[in-house]
Simulated assay, not measured.
Amino acid sequence: MHGHREPATGRTLAARAAIVAVAGVAPVLVQSAANAAPIETADVGVSIPVDAHVGAVAPIAEVDPAAPLSVAAERNDPTRKRSGAVQAPLVGVDPGTLHLPDFSAPAVAPIQAPEGKIRVGSVQMDAPEWLPADITAQVNDGAAGAEASLAQTLDSAGFDPARSDRIAAEVVGKAAIGASVGSTLVSPLAGTSALIGAATGFVAGTPFAPAGWVVVTALGAGIGYGVIAAPAMLVGGAVGAAVGAVEGYNAVTP
């Protein structure tokens, strides 16, 4: 007994016809492709490695903030100290290019003193063992700050950076030497003046004894010494600074 079959509709008959057509044409297409001549492709000279990663990019190197900078960048980066002055040939100074400082030049970074050294401009010496490290650092920072400010001023006056560094170092260093020499030369007079000041302070502090004898006597000694030593130090420092400026201006070697 045959199963019941639904009558074929027009859509069903069309689908069956399409299947029969594809089944009949497919072998012919396959055979034609097998017998056909191979298709040649033009060689454009482009070679893509099999293991190439499409879209891969080189990683960006991280910048180490402690890494050394170029000489110019290091010199004008006030956020950190630089290792030393500009080491470049010193060209002759052209007076025609100089002018009054306009303070428009970029800031100049201070120079880091070597470990265990006291550096005051062009003067460098071993730090005394008895001098505390924080005091040594204060001396170095103060001298380096003054030197950097002077170098910036010289830059704004038209000096070459290497020349500015040289003059600034010589001025600060020679000023320190001059002040020391001036103080040493008048030390006998300053000592006598300190004794006179101490005696005067002792008398003046008697009404407030015994504390007055200690405090006022020490104050009188300090004033007596300073009256003689301070002017000598100022004069010596000024003379030394002038000598350093001349030497730095006329220097011909780095």
Rank of each mutant, 00 (worst) to 15 (best):
I177S: 13
A144C: 12
V186Y: 06
A85K: 13
P7H: 13
A61W: 00
R11F: 15
V203P: 00
G222N: 02
A242G: 12
Q87I: 10
P161R: 02
G10V: 13
L100F: 08
A133C: 02
V171F: 03
V63M: 02
V171A: 06
N250P: 01
I167M: 03
G55R: 01
T200E: 03
G182S: 05
V108Q: 01
F103C: 09
V86N: 00
A113Y: 10
V203Q: 01
G224R: 00
A176V: 04
G24V: 09
A42M: 10
V120L: 15
E170W: 06
A34H: 07
A113T: 09
S183K: 03
A37S: 14
A8N: 04
G55F: 00
G205I: 04
T79I: 11
A17W: 11
V215F: 05
G182H: 07
L13K: 15
A168S: 13
A36C: 05
N250W: 03
A229L: 00
V28P: 06
A88K: 10
G205E: 03
V252D: 11
I118Y: 07
T184Y: 11
E129N: 09
G224H: 00
T253Y: 08
S156F: 01
E62F: 12
A107M: 06
G45R: 05
T136N: 02
R16A: 15
A8Y: 06
G45P: 12
Y249K: 05
A8D: 07
G121A: 03
P132I: 02
P49T: 08
E115D: 12
E40D: 15
I177A: 15
L185A: 15
P254S: 10
D160K: 03
G191S: 11
A14Q: 10
D160F: 02
D77W: 06
S187K: 05
M125H: 06
A190D: 03
A144K: 05
D141Q: 12
P68T: 02
Q112V: 06
I177V: 14
T217C: 10
V57K: 07
Q31W: 12
P231D: 07
T136A: 09
G145I: 05
E62Q: 15
A137K: 11
V71Q: 01
M125G: 05
G197N: 13
S32K: 08
F208D: 04
E147M: 05
D141T: 12
L100A: 06
G24W: 02
E40A: 15
G224W: 01
A23T: 14
A113W: 09
G3N: 11
Q87W: 03
S32R: 14
T9V: 06
G222V: 00
N76W: 10
A42L: 12
Y225M: 08
V57I: 10
A56Q: 14
T136F: 02
A211I: 12
A56K: 14
A168G: 04
H4Q: 03
S83R: 11
R166E: 10
A23M: 15
V216Y: 01
A143D: 07
A73V: 09
A190Y: 03
V25N: 04
G205V: 01
G191N: 12
S164P: 01
D126N: 11
T136Y: 06
A56H: 13
A42N: 11
E247N: 10
T41W: 13
A61I: 08
V243W: 07
H53R: 14
V54K: 07
V227A: 09
T9S: 12
D43S: 11
G205L: 04
V71L: 00
V181A: 02
